[in-house]
Amino acid sequence: MAGNILDDVSSVMSIGFDMIAGPILRWKKDVDTINHVELDYDHFALATYLAFKGGNAGGPVPKAIVYDAFSVVGFEKGMDLVCLFLKNTKALEDISRLKEIATSFSAQMDKEDGADDQEPSTVNTAEDDGVKEIKRIICNMLRQNTLPTPEIRSHFKLTSSEAWAIMSALEHDGLVKRSGKDGRSVLWTLA
């Protein structure tokens, strides 16, 4: 049964949320390289993200959206949304198994992304308008809140060294401070 459901998955996409750009297609993989859906995934990502997560008002959110030729099931992972493209609606009968599959692909994506949190020995402190805007938003995000470096990094399409450069500069300016550790990751808060 489990294998059958995986056969019904044609593609996987992970949609991230960049704090400056908004929803972005972060990762995509065609599981079935022959029978996958041909569409503009970048454009589709925004509409899909809003359909599954739109608004702040609460209330019911869909588990799946059925189109003429395929279905999409979406699972939240923090601010991200992991979507499976299904060839038919039969697979929707086992949402928990689909969630397992989505989790497995998500782990694969994280691995490929190389999400580590090792503090580099040197950091590039070059600053442009984009970096200034990221710093401004980070300070607002850390108000009455703590966040680990990898999560901050994922909110801004940053590499590990870029994230560290920005956090180190903010720390140097006395705007943020380290408030502890979450596993191997440094937790940050407003100074």
Partner: peptide, 12 residues
Amino acid sequence: ITGQYIPTQGFD
């Protein structure tokens, strides 16, 4: 009002 930043998805 919680004071925490949760980005608005689209609009409210």
